[in-house]
C-alpha cells in the first residue's frame, strides 16, 4: 500500500468506497505496482479478496506483498484471500492425462471447445459469496491481467460477458469492488484488446492509466500516471476529473509528484 497514492485517490482504510470498478491500464510499461498496491490496501482494510493472478506465481506476489507489509500466506489461511494461480492451473489443464478430478479447474476453458468462462465465474462467485460467519468487509475481485485471457484463446464476447456478470454480482449485488489490469497500446493493432479496453473504460468509475515517458528511459521518473474520476451518470452534467502525475518506483514504495518536478529536472 502506497500512502501517497491513497492521498491522491482520497481513499481511506476506514471509509471504503463501495460498488466501484477500478481500471488499471498500462501503455508500454508495467502497471503491476498498482495491483500490488490494491492487493495490500484491501487486505489491510479487512476486505474479502479474490485474486485471479494469471501472470505471476504466488511466491512473487507474496514476496512483494511482504515488502508492503502484508502476508499473503496468513491471509490465505485465515480465509481472507482466495488466490487463483493461473500459471499452475494452466499447466494442470493442458497436461491433464485424461484423469478428471472432482474439483473443476477454473481455467477449464483451455481444454474445452466451448471456451466460455462460466467455470471461472462460478469460482469467483463462490469464493466471494456472503457466508453466515462473515467477518470481512465488502468483497473485492482483483484480476491481473485480463489481457492474458484473450491470449489464452477466450472469445472477446465471452470475456465481456464474464466481466459483465462479475460487475453485476460483485459491484451491484454484493456491494463490493473490482480492480482490473489491462494492457493497451496505440499501435498494437490488437482489435480484440482495444474492444476490451473500451468496454472497461466505459464502465469503470476510476481509471488509472500508466504510461512510460515518451522521451524514453529516465532514472528519476519511471512513468506518468493519469487518474480519471468518471462523472457519475446519475448527477447530470458532472464532468470527468483528470489529474496527471509522474511517479518513481522505489524498493518498497512509490513516490508521486507533479509533472516536471522530479529530481532530474529541478
Amino acid at each position: 500500500m502506497f500512502v501517497e497514492l491513497n492521498h491522491l485517490l482520497n481513499s481511506d482504510l476506514d471509509k471504503l468506497k463501495q460498488e466501484e470498478l477500478t481500471l488499471i491500464c498500462d501503455i508500454k510499461t508495467d502497471g503491476s505496482f498498482l495491483v500490488h498496491h490494491f492487493l495490500s490496501f484491501y487486505l489491510r482494510a479487512g476486505c474479502k479478496v479474490c485474486f485471479v493472478a494469471l501472470v505471476q506465481s504466488f511466491s512473487h506476489y507474496n514476496i512483494v506483498a511482504q515488502k508492503l507489509g502484508v502476508n499473503l500466506t496468513t491471509a490465505k489461511e485465515r480465509g481472507q484471500l482466495v488466490f487463483l494461480e493461473g500459471l499452475k492451473s494452466s499447466v494442470n489443464v493442458l497436461l491433464a492425462d485424461g484423469q478428471k478430478s472432482e474439483q473443476k479447474n477454473p481455467l477449464q476453458f483451455l481444454s474445452d471447445t466451448s471456451c466460455d468462462l462460466k467455470v471461472l465465474y462460478d469460482f469467483v462467485r463462490n469464493s466471494l459469496a456472503l457466508s453466515s460467519t462473515n467477518t470481512w468487509k465488502c468483497p473485492v475481485l482483483l484480476v491481473d491481467d485480463v489481457s492474458v485471457l484473450l491470449s489464452l484463446g477466450v472469445n472477446t464476447i465471452h470475456l465481456l460477458d464474464f466481466l459483465h456478470y462479475c460487475r453485476a454480482t460483485i459491484c451491484s449485488q454484493l456491494e463490493g469492488n473490482m480492480v482490473v489490469l489491462v494492457h493497451s497500446s496505440d499501435d498494437s493493432e490488437d482489435e480484440e484488446n482495444e474492444l476490451l479496453v473500451n468496454y472497461l473504460c466505459h464502465h469503470s468509475n476510476l481509471i488509472l492509466q500508466v504510461e512510460g515517458l515518451a522521451t524514453g528511459f529516465c532514472k528519476e521518473v519511471h512513468g506518468q500516471l493519469r487518474i480519471t474520476w468518471k462523472g457519475s451518470c446519475r448527477q447530470k452534467g458532472e464532468k470527468d476529473v483528470v489529474k496527471d502525475y509522474q511517479y518513481r518506483i522505489h524498493d518498497k514504495t512509490v513516490t508521486f509528484f507533479a509533472r516536471g518536478t522530479s529530481a532530474a529536472v529541478l
Binding site: 493461473g86 500459471l87 499452475k88 494452466s90 499447466v91 493442458l94 491470449s151 484463446g153
Partner: peptide, 18 residues
C-alpha cells in the same frame, strides 16, 4: 489458430516457475 502459441507460452511459463 491464433492462440496456440500464446497458450503454449502461458503453460510453459507455469512449468518454468515451478
Amino acid at each position: 489458430y491464433i492462440h496456440s502459441l500464446t497458450r503454449f507460452l502461458h503453460a510453459l511459463r507455469g512449468l518454468l516457475r515451478m
